[in-house]
Design a protein around this nucleic acid. Structure first.
Lengths: 232, 232
DNA sequence: ATATTTGATTTGTTATCACAAATCACAATT
DNA sequence: AATTGTGATTTGTGATAACAAATCAAATAT
């Protein structure tokens, strides 16, 4: 009954100081599911349903949903019902505009902090993407995400990183639920980003990233238009 | 006992469709207080205290604080205690960097939508600021805020607007709690912004706004440095 | 047959309460 | 005198339950 006995691990490692609350767990789980396409755009997020499937009370779910609404990952209708947003083309363009600003800035900043490790990681992910066969949209999206965030983390700006995360969260459902024509073009864009970072050329890095987002965005927009007119 | 009788206002106005929950009210009130300097940086936000002073249960306060933590208006320490952030110089520079990106973009976008009304409003606010006597820091901050957001609302981009709001929320406590040397220089910056918007010159608008933020930021940074070394 | 009402069900909102972790204050011991 | 242990208090976390608003469906009236 001696206090603190459970803090001195016999295995030699002190107990992790991080306390994982249910709030945080639910928030992180929902976040991951949204980002990876776990929910279709337009689907309703019902408190009690989610609570039951996550085996918690409605309260932490409510909390997590509230947070996600603030960062626009979910949308609250006037009825106070919460849905995964259905992104219009205008909204997508709006997001892309901001992404170019922030992710371009991050790429430029990354040039000041880039290390051989980062370059190596980027090349490794790049190879994985190139070796992706067929139209494996989900895998492409996940690897693409890994590639981009490797760059953004190198920028060493927690504020910019969190804002970019929020933007990706908003377009996650689109990427994962609209069938996109994946060509191998995207690879060249990543190649240019790696080159610019390797050279420490901030201007080139921003330009390369901007072009990547523009090209990729154009494909999404085309898919969005096609998706809106299923007939004929 | 006819249903809907309370929806058809006899005064001619339909009952407001907006349902104002306690959550929202508390959130909005805390938000306003933070932005306008109601809390000093570093002060703790205690659930039960706030609940008591707002005459609600701790639950809506908890909800509102959670949201504000997500948008970085409040900061959660590892102990899970929540405080108003104390902004370091590095953090301030980080925020300014992003502000220049987003607010510059907003100014450029505003050029496409600017109307005589907007120009008139800006001039009116500008006159008010110029007529401000003495070092009325609070009033200056409030009017400055009004001026800038008049521009940003004209940009017609809800996403950019909400992101800018979040950034202002983060620097609100700084502006209102660090004594700043208010010179009349700021006025010229606003004058240039009005001119650029009036001419519909997006490039000039972005440049004018950037300079305004840089100049203003420099004064804040000077104040932050002075504030950190009170002795000698 | 259509529209409206009314009751039942669902769903979000909020207070109360029980619990857990952290902090604080005081005492005991070295 | 300083430090460590111990209990009390404070503070955040999460579940339950009561409440309110919205939705849905069936029944009624026109």
């Amino acid at each position: 009954m001696v206090k603190g006995v459970d803090k001195v691990g016999l295995g030699g490692s002190i107990r992790a100081v991080e306390r994982e609350t249910l709030n945080d767990r639910v928030y992180r789980e929902l976040r991951t599911m949204i980002m990876s396409g776990g929910f279709a755009p337009g689907s309703e997020m019902k408190l009690r349903d989610l609570a039951q499937s996550l085996h918690v009370s409605p309260m932490p779910v409510r909390d997590a949903i509230g947070r996600l609404v603030v960062e626009r990952a979910l949308k609250m209708l006037p009825n106070h019902r919460v849905i995964v947003p259905e992104t219009t083309i205008d909204e997508f363009l709006e997001i892309r505009r901001v992404r170019i600003l922030l992710e371009g800035e991050a790429a430029a900043l990354a040039c000041q902090h880039v290390s051989p490790d980062v370059i190596a990681s980027l090349k490794r992910i790049h190879e994985k993407i190139k070796s992706l066969s067929g139209n494996k949209q989900r895998q492409f999206w996940a690897l693409n995400q890994e590639f981009h965030f490797t760059v953004y983390e190198a920028a060493k700006s927690p504020l910019i990183l969190s804002m970019i995360e929020s933007l990706w969260l908003q377009i996650g459902p689109v990427f994962n639920h609209i069938p996109i024509n994946l060509t191998s073009e995207g690879a060249r864009g990543h190649q240019r980003i790696i080159a610019a970072l390797g050279a420490g050329d901030a201007k080139a890095a921003r330009a390369a990233l901007t072009e990547d987002l523009m090209k990729g965005g154009d494909r999404i927009i085309a898919a969005l238009i096609q998706d809106k007119q299923p007939a004929h």
